[in-house]
């Protein structure tokens, strides 16, 4: 007798455990407004990345086409995988002294692991992380960028 009770107990117990699970899924089925899907390309306009999001390294320029990079090369040293190459030139400043200045700040986005170490290393806060994330291009060469814009100058008052 006991075994029969156990047998039916098992059946009903099992059955109810299944129903509990079905209740959970049914609740979500009937509350479709709680869906979590983001329809990505459609929601581009409203999609906002957090302000610390690490998308790519950029060098901000102000309205006079001036940046803060002195060409010290510390970011190149800090980078663990050689994504940054600094090419410097020497310029003659107004008082006739020879000075080192940035010629090209070359950044290989394709190699960058977005680790943020270059930004920490930069003594003059010349580079920062941008929030863009759509980096797909047809040609790999487009991923190699020159961060300082052509004709840009060092901002006044940035010391090395």
């Amino acid at each position: 007798m006991r075994s029969i009770i156990k047998y039916f107990g098992e059946i009903f117990g099992g059955f109810f455990s299944l129903l509990t699970g079905m209740k959970v899924t049914a609740r979500y089925f009937f509350t479709p407004w709680k869906n979590v899907t983001q329809e990505y390309p459609e929601n581009r306009a409203t999609l906002k990345m957090p302000d610390r999001f690490r998308g790519e390294v950029v060098m901000p320029h102000d309205e006079n086409n001036e940046h803060r990079c002195t060409g010290c090369g510390l970011c190149e040293l800090a980078c663990p995988n050689g994504s940054i190459e600094i090419i410097t030139k020497s310029v003659i400043s107004e008082d006739g002294k020879k000075k080192r200045a940035i010629d090209q700040h070359i950044y290989h986005l394709g190699m960058c692991t977005l680790c943020n170490l270059c930004i920490r290393a930069c003594p003059s806060s010349a580079i920062k992380m941008d929030q863009t994330f759509e980096h797909a291009v047809w040609n790999r060469a487009e991923l190699t960028k020159v961060l300082n814009k052509p004709g840009s100058k060092l901002m006044e008052g940035v010391k090395e």
């Binding site: 990345m49 957090p50 610390r52 999001f53 690490r54 692991t113 977005l114 680790c115 943020n116 170490l117």
Partner: peptide
């Protein structure tokens, strides 16, 4: 992951803890 993203800027490869402390202050 959203919380991570907000504070460290990355979701998976955080690189948040660095020798000496953490990379940024919390958001």
């Amino acid at each position: 992951l959203d919380i991570f993203e907000e504070t460290c800027g990355a979701r998976l490869t955080l690189n948040y803890s660095v020798p000496g402390g953490v990379m940024f202050d919390i958001h």
